[in-house]
């Protein structure tokens, strides 16, 4: 199913995107103490990306759960073909 494949690819891309936003020079763009709504931009940026990652992970977890009716769990290990 292409849809499931897309969700899985997204699951692989998400941490890479997170790393790009947080530990690449991309982060330095927002490195400023000028304030927006009374909060420093750099603080807003780090916590904003953080929250964004969490929400994206939540969305992906929901999608994967919906896609995966097949249990991810290995069945209890002692069981075989009986």
């Amino acid at each position: 199913m292409p849809n499931r494949q897309r969700t899985r690819d997204a699951a692989l891309v998400l941490p890479i995107l997170g790393a790009f936003l947080l530990i690449s020079p991309a982060a330095s763009v927002f490195n400023s103490t000028s304030t927006v709504l009374g909060l420093p931009v750099v603080v807003l940026y780090v916590f904003g990306v953080w929250l964004g990652l969490i929400l994206a992970a939540l969305g992906l977890a929901r999608r994967l759960a919906a896609d995966d009716d097949r249990p991810l769990v290995a069945e209890p290990l002692d069981e075989t073909d009986d």
Binding site: R8, V46, I54
Partner: peptide
């Protein structure tokens, strides 16, 4: 925050 961002990345990328 780095001490918590690293684990965040690993858990967000749990699939891998």
């Amino acid at each position: 925050a780095t001490i918590y961002l690293g684990p965040t990345l690993v858990f967000v990328g749990w699939w891998f």
